[in-house]
Design a protein around this nucleic acid. Sequence first.
RNA 1: GCUGGUGUAGCUCAAUUGGCAGAGCAGCUGAUUUGUAAUCAGCAGGUUAAGGGUUCAAGUCCCUUCAUCAGCUCCA
Length: 612
Amino acid sequence: MNAPHAPDEPLHRIRHSLAHVLAQAVLEYRPGSTLGFGPPVADGFYYDFILSEPISEEDFPELEKRMKHILKRNQRFEREELPRDEAMARLSGMQEPYKREYAEELFEKKSLSTLTFYRSGAFLDMCDGPHVESTKDIPRGCFKLRSVAGAYWRGDSRNVMMTRLYAWAFESEEVLEAHVKAYHEALARDHKKLGKELELFVIDEQVGKGLPLWLPNGTVIRDELERLAKELEFKAGYHRVATPHLTKAGLYYQTGHLPYYKDHIYPIMELKEQTESGEVVREAYCLKPMNCPHHHRIFAARKRSYRELPLRLAEYGQVYRFEDSGALSGLLRVRGMCMNDAHIYCTEENLKREFLAVMELHKQLYEILGLTDYYMRFSTWDPDDPKGKSKYVDDPVAWEKSQCFIREAMVESGLPFREVKGEAAFYGPKIDVQFRTVTGREETASTNQLDFAVPQRMNLSYVGADNQEHRPYIIHRAPLGTHERFVAFLIEHYGGAFPTWLAPTQVRILVVADRFLDYARALEEDLRISMVRVEVDASGERINKAIRNASTAKIPNVLVLGEREVEERGVTLRRYGVEEQEAMPYEAFKARLLKTIESRSRGFVAAPSTCS
RNA sequence: GCUGGUGUAGCUCAAUUGGCAGAGCAGCUGAUUUGUAAUCAGCAGGUUAAGGGUUCAAGUCCCUUCAUCAGCUCCA
């Protein structure tokens, strides 16, 4: 995935300067509005405002017109650096309370001595730059207003909600148009759209938002993915376990999750009992928001020896998290999800090798699925975070040590990663795998965390060679994240045209006329007992229509049967997205098909060699 | 949860701005039996998301709720 642009790149300057032009246009159009932040972002820029009067997308043509007028004026961007007192005095005169608040913070916390302003025409903004020299350096027609949305001041939901205007901006009109076109084409691959068209899943109002129902077609994809992960995990020495959806709430007090996680746990169910002194709560249960505590209890089910470490417990575990309703989105963010979860209990000596093995598992999975467009994000703690004490487990030595293990393992794995300070889980550092959706949103698919805190809280231990009790380390890992989100990625990745091994229907058999249906049924039966997902199109539609239907359904392999095929016990194969059809004996087709499925090939493999 | 959109048949969308709810696809029935991307005809399909209000009259205007989309926040 592309890294963000460096600040001194020309495109970055253009975007940053256009943000000022937008702000200038907005202040002309809605006098009395105040400014928030307006930075460049991946595909363009945005600017946040408190507007004196609302702006909707209907106002975009007018705003764009005003921006273009400003560009024509050849305004220069002039940099001014003012000492603290002068800067604050100027900000007070500007009626920009949010800029002033930020300036105060810069002086206090970052102990800056001066503040930078940029003036372009009548517009003055507190801004660090850099900018283009003049608006004439901004290519004509290189931007387009995109959307209007709400955004909290400084990203904090306790703050005021501002209006954010997003725009696309590129180095030229051609690049902009190509990008906008590509964006609209990409929307055809949106998992919500394809999920409906291909009947993969539905989200039913009566069942509840964020609680997807997996239709037969979608369930096939889940099952195949699960089978793949189980195979690789078995080979990597994992043991499978199974745990219930419901659990006593007290467990999460013990792990320490509750204070950090309370808002995301469904309301606790209390079993009450009437007594003489009134109603008392006998038991409190919750839907489990994560599988870890249960696996930890399995670890603690008996005394553990260092000889059985590392112990790797794996489960495709269903969990429920109460996400904000506004955050829900198709399969990408749901409230009920099934995690490709596992916990590895190990010694400090095991740690690096186990983490490497987890990374190796990622490589294998992503290689088979053909995924290349992702990056690994290494999230560490931030000892200087003002919320540090409440946000993270307080154990600086353990933080440094465990981060060191991960860093070494990552370097050794050869996988590129990017370090982000302050994004760690409360109990330890983590490696997340980030993907981008068709709409350009970045999402975490896989998450892998090192945990040195929970073993202590849950009092987990093993007996070492020295006959003493020791604390294990835990690696939490979920290379496929959740079925929900991962299947969403795969739908978009393949554009709904799944490779044969994943495809809900692997083979559809069409007949030129109904009298060939007997032959079709015979092949269907033979393929089905070989575990192939096959179906016969007995709709009686003309062959053209039947082919069109199979193609619309993105079925990878279509067989066309008629007089010739029946006579020769052959088939004519039509592959999705391939123009030419191919005639071959049925047995040859079957052998190649089975090989394609077994090898999880993304193409259609050649016939296996008959000689040994 | 917050800001701003949207909600009409299973799906994609109309309805001349307040005046008789409609089309294509899908579905069902019948005819056709066709060799590589849409055969023809008929039928059926709706409390216009739900509830309330304004009006002679509401899919259309107003209010509440629900769902959904784009963001913010959060996270798999």
